[in-house]
Amino acid sequence: MALTDTPNIPDPDGFYDELLAAHAGLSAGQTHALNARLVLILANHIGDRDVLRAALATARAGAEGTR
């Protein structure tokens, strides 16, 4: 299975709201910790190592050139 990079989430604005709401009122440290938990939860749900590897590479590409 390939990594889906076309729109796949119903009501994307609603999801984005919920994502920010989950972080509301958290310190930077708490936000980082929440994101780490979220990554692990979603990674386990996906389970497919090829998809996870592609997702990691895609995310990593975004880090190149930023500091």
Binding site: H32, A33, A36, R37, L40, I41, N44
Partner: peptide, 20 residues
């Protein structure tokens, strides 16, 4: 450190994290 703590935290309630 961030991910290790996340794993330990999740493992209390979620079996999937225990294997990590």
């Amino acid at each position: 450190s961030l991910f290790r703590d996340a794993v330990l935290d999740l493992a209390r309630r979620h079996p999937f994290a225990r294997v990590l």
